[in-house]
Design a protein around this nucleic acid. Sequence first.
DNA 1: TTGTGTTTTATTGCCTCC
DNA 2: GGAGGCAATAAAACACAA
Length: 329
Amino acid sequence: MAGGRVYSSGTGGNSGSNLSVLFQNQKGACASEPLDSLFLSGSSPSFLGSRSMVSFADVRGGNGSNRPFFRTYDHDDNGDEDLEDYFHQPEKKRRLSADQVQFLEKSFEVENKLEPDRKVQLAKELGLQPRQVAIWFQNRRARWKTKQMEKEYEVLQDSYNSLKDDYENLLKEKDKLKAQVVVLQDKLLLREKEKEISELSDTNKLSQEPLQKPVAESVSEGEVSKVSIVACKQEDMSSAKSDIFDSDSPHYTDGVHSALLEPGDSSNVFEPDQSDLSQDEEDNLNLSKSLLPAYIFPKLEDVDYSDPSENSCNFGFPADDHAFWSWSY
DNA sequence: TTGTGTTTTATTGCCTCC
DNA sequence: GGAGGCAATAAAACACAA
């Protein structure tokens, strides 16, 4: 006999006959199904007798440091032949019967920790060794913990996905707002230059003095074209073109200006093309205008362009003042 | 039947608590 | 120092497709 241990029929001593009623063959039964019948007071089922046997196979003392010191035997596995084999083979792992597992599951649901008294009691009722019960609880706790972690992982995963979606939406929103900022900044710049120019124009008109220094001192070279163009925009564009640019002038053929003055493209340059703005952008623009100081977004009607004798494209300069224009370009 | 993946039972070693 | 818990792991039992 393996390990010199004596197989015992268990400690409970109850006949298993009642178990055939309480526990029909439940192999494969769902462990979570109600098992109230297992806990009927005063009739604690014993898993001894006809269904289970316990083997004590450990010669070396059952302190857990060696091979298992007991085995269960389930008659489901076939009658006497198997029993005979079982007694003669070295100890093999035997799975607990479905009944035993269900009983343990129910007990686990009540309390997943095992006090010594309870362990002994369960072992008695199931015909198992206390250590076997303890091991089952230990493994069961491990499985439970794994399941908990899986659940928590799912929750975290959902949370992460939700946050990720929010983040991506915010990024899109941010890009959209950035684009709007760029558009608004461009408009703002144009407005500022426009205002500067009109102020200078007024000043020059009042002083009637020849311009010693071009306006350009306060306007960078790259901006001049814009500035002049913006100013021109306030007038009729066709007249602006004819007034400012002599078709014979070399400046007129400047590619940039030619392009800028293309009738079809003029709207892109001189004025924000409202048709290019989404409704949101238009709303934003209007909002910005209402929030920003008046000097940044002067209302067109507030700016006096009414002097018909004044060609704003000239800024009060003689149209043939090539000194200015040659500087400009 | 067999190979393979999964589940269950059990061991081992380490740690904590009393 | 012993008891008990846990993580890691071994190994048997089981499920299942080919």
